[in-house]
Amino acid sequence: MDLTADKLTQIIKERLQATEVEVQDMSGGCGQAFAVIIVSDVFRGKNKLMRHRMVNGALKEEISNIHAFTQKVFTQEEWDEQKKMFGV
C-alpha cells in the first residue's frame, strides 16, 4: 500500500491532532519522499527535539518505509505568528 500525500495528511491529522497539515510529495511520484508542515497544539511546551520525536513516533511505520522525511512543526500560536510575519 503506497503512501500518498493525501493519505499521509489524513494520518497526521488523526494521530497528532493537527489543525493544519501541509504535505509535499518530493519524490516525483514514487511516494518515497515527503516534506511536511504540521501545526498542532500537542507541541506546546515541547522543544524541537521532543517535537520531532513525537512526530517520528506517531509516524514510525510510515517513515521507516520511505526514503526521505523532512518536517517542520509549529503550535497554532507559532504558526499564526509565521503567517503574520511572512504572509504564508
Binding site: 527535539l49 520531532h52 523532512t70 517542520k72
Partner: peptide, 10 residues
Amino acid sequence: FVGGCDIVMA
C-alpha cells in the same frame, strides 16, 4: 544527540 537535518537547519 542534537537531531537530524531539519533540526540542525532550524
